[in-house]
Design a binder for these strands. Sequence first.
DNA 1: CCGTCCCGACTTTTT
DNA 2: GTCGGGACGG
Length: 840
Amino acid sequence: MSNGFDDIPFFDEEPAPRGRPDGPQAGAPVPATTPASMPASGTASSPAAGLGIAARAMAARDVGRRPDYLSGLNPEQREAVESIDGPVLVLAGAGTGKTRVLTTRIAHILASSKAFPSQILAVTFTNKAAREMKERVGVLVGGAVEGMPWMGTFHSIGVKLLRRHAELCGLRSAFTILDTDDVVRLIKQLIQADGIDDKRWPAKQFAQLIDGWKNKGLSPADIPEGDARAFANGKGRELYAAYQARLKTLNACDFGDLLLHPIKMFREHPDLLKEYHAKFRYILVDEYQDTNTAQYMWLRLLAQRPKGVPQNVCCVGDDDQSIYGWRGAEVDNILRFEKDFVGAKVIKLERNYRSTEHILGAAAHLIAHNEGRLGKTLFTDRSDPDDQKVQVHAAWDSEEEARAVGEEIEQLQRQTHRLNDMAILVRASFQMREFEDRFVTLGLNYRVIGGPRFYERMEIRDALAYFRLVCQDADDLAFERIVNTPKRGLGDTTIRALHDYARARDIPMLAAAAEMIDTDELKAKARKSLFDVVTNFRRWQGLLENTPHTELAETILEESGYTDMWKNDKSAEAPGRLENLKELIRSMEQFESMRGFLEHIALVMDTETNENLDAVSIMTLHSAKGLEFETVFLPGWEEGLFPHQRALDEGGRSGLEEERRLAYVGLTRAKRRCHIWFVSNRRIHGLWQSTLPSRFLDELPVTHVDISEPEQSYGGYNRGGYGQSRFDKQEPFSNTYSTPGWKRAQANKTDATRDNWGSRSGVSIERVGYGESGPRAKTIDGELIAKSKVDDPSKFTVGERVFHIKFGNGNIAGIEGNKLTIDFDRAGQKKVLDGFVDKL
DNA sequence: CCGTCCCGACTTTTT
DNA sequence: GTCGGGACGG
């Protein structure tokens, strides 16, 4: 995937600033001496002098004694921590102590008095990671974390910069952050306003397009002509520009803008950028493999230094765990680090402290199938004959899979393993349901991580719209959301009239409403309702500064009739919604103002889980990154699901490699036990499909993997079901997809994609004994391949009548190796492995 | 203005 | 198969 860097003007085309920027800027204090020459003992010139007494005591204590935080680090980790000056790339494999290195490094910088806490820029991807970093740095350096305002996600730091300098980007400081939902609604309005058919050109799709452009750091003028023409009868660029203009009038930003505005601002105001150069003495970036182009540009701007001054940038990441390519992450960023930051030191962390040698061996062998990696090999000293190999299990269908996993979990539980130490990691969230159903039946505690989020609930979004409009009366999206919620007799007609009036005069809708009630353009009833709405909002806005925000929030929800609306609602969900609203108000307490709260809610989307309950975790592989469990279950290793068909169709080879990395992430979450499952039949989109084992199973090394025989299941490979996926050229799911998108994808399928399905002909094949008396499995270079019948002549003939346990009777329409194409009487045409059908 | 019915989607997901 | 959004009719 090309990222189009060559087209992007980078800062290095501008002259680099020379020498130290002028004296300390407003904001954080700057040490009087250059960091390099600063004495290591706390003197008047050390950062401690500028801090409070507690912090000073802390600093003195840390500086005065031997840094014992360094003990317990292995040599590589230690080097990563101590190489403070100049660019450093830490390639940290799974479970090699990445977070520890990052946090210890911060502690080390502080302890060496090289910078104030406020002079360290530490960026993460997720709030979860930011929180964890904060906690762990806190353990090391105590209260000094409080003085680290620049530790957070790319986006939260972006907001902070933007709030300070909003006017440089044509915004006011109280700007609203729109979430995806708002963005789509807004775009839809624009598409319709332009007279474009919004059926043919869905707003959602365009929102994703814009998101993609923003990920690449492209503003409307920069997008490739082809892209611009490809949407809405060629109006893509105009639409994007109109969208940006609209955001400005709404005094709003989308997530992409939180990065793009600062980039633009820094480029246009080099003096301002210099201030931040002086400020951020040390920059640390976590999960560097997940950065997209915009983040990369942002980072390079901030890391820029005059010639001769070291760029104190430390990026930590793992190219093998890059699983967010689909949302714009550029693995290239990490692969190119040494070129980008001249003189960079690259440190590999390969000693794994998490998993058994079997798990590591399996994971390493699997990931070795990827090209385009920097190449790390994890190792461990840990070797215990009792360690279990990675277990591969077969099941007839997903129901049996869930049942068997449930049994395994109960058995572990009987051996006094805690449920908290177990996780089920799925490829796609629809897989979760079967496990949930099963666990409900069993009475087994579970928690689903990453499900629907609190803030996405209707009542929460409604309430937030009220709050947003009070804080920022240009927020038309909020206005439109709640102007008729609860019902006030302000329907489409009224809203359209308001909208037109507002747009014609370029004023917010709330202001338009205020004006329109004095005209006779609206019916008396609507006018009265609107008058009430406007006076309410004016009053609430008046209360904003001097009323405690939780109290104000309650007032708003009461006076607007919103709580009453749910109190009068007889539906089953109503009490829950009221409860959620209470919860919302409660959660506001920890913020100092309503604005602060709104910002938090826009940026922090995760809901915390109840750690006290002992429960099995169920989550997607994506959300499992960064976590670890004693026992990990990996169900659904079937072609089409994992690797996912769409990843293959749309991503080609790199799509497949990303799926493989996902598998790698899954395996490396396990500390001691790892169970992989595949099934022969899965219901997808409501239809039963016969499936083939994932090619990733073939890529596991025999030495670290056991195949456990299903006792009496239909679909064990004893029946021949565990077929030669390596040689498989069919698309197992193809029969079920009939959507236009799917057909398009099929039509566009490239040869490159095909190749990935293809054989590895030329690789030597040998037969080795497998297990004691179990079935014999083939291996390729020490890999499993399924028991293969590829050489056997088929026992079936075309036209023959056969029976399949799930699909019933049918006629054989074609034979390809051991795969049969069968026209079933009821289920239509399907491809099935011959092991699953019987002659009639 | 509200409710019902039908049609389409349906990988992963942060911010 | 199931859910959600949109269109249309009462």
